[in-house]
Amino acid sequence: MYKYFLLLFVGIVQKTAAQELFVFTDPASGLAARSLNLKLSDHYMPYDRVYSRPAHRLMLDAEVGISRKLTAMAGVSVSNMHTYQVKQEALFVEAKYRCLSLDEVHRHFRMAAFVQASHTKAPFHYDETNLTGDKSGVRLGMIATKLWNRFALSGTLSHTQVLDSSRFNETVYIPRRIYQTLNYSLSGGYLVLPRRYTSYRQVNVNLYGELLAQQALDHKSYYVDAAPALQFIFFSNTKLNVGYRFKLAGNAQRMSNVSWLFSIERSFLNVWK
């Protein structure tokens, strides 16, 4: 049985090519110089045990292509994930630098380094070191992405330091708080439609499968999630993403082991000279 899966996978890789516009993670490629990408996302958890109701985090972020290799992003989130009412929660920024590009026709191998930082007003709950609302902190990481025509494979490895004030409080020690994690992911993407391009107006459909994982470095806590996602691209400039995320393994304390991510993105090219 595994042999057939392997043959199918090799067949896809060799005969087609991929997409790398992942829903849950970033590829090593950045934006075009002088371009802008606006994204509105809703991270939705069907059930929050503390408040016995669904929880949402709405995020708006703007990504800018500073140069052909450097991309910067800034975002803001509002949420009722850690509070009873919906409140403005976090500000987060990111810079990504593409440090390696080996391009061929219909394929590439690229690597990038990135740094993220966030400041959140949310109280310190759970083990996840998410920097879009859950925790204040910094993250440093590397991304490697390989594209073969319709198929793309990408891996990310990063280190997160949570910079919550409780970490530096010398009078009150709160046990079992996680301040340092290793985060890693493996993402695959496949261009399902169109089979052959005829215009920029064709709707593109991409299918993604991602593994998202976190390993705490200061306590024995980890999780590994699977995250299938579907993406529609309209007019070659607008993306509609739907992703579902569920726990495969782990012992980390989390608000929920399942969640959804809905987002819509619009890119603008040649925004300035």
């Binding site: 391009y197 593109n204 691209i233």
Partner: peptide, 21 residues
């Protein structure tokens, strides 16, 4: 000009808009 490193229409459009400048 044949462009390397891409395989999607969104990427092609990015190149086209850049060349049109």
């Amino acid at each position: 000009v044949q462009v390397g490193g891409l395989s999607c229409a969104l990427c092609s459009k990015t190149v086209q808009k850049s060349l049109e400048k």
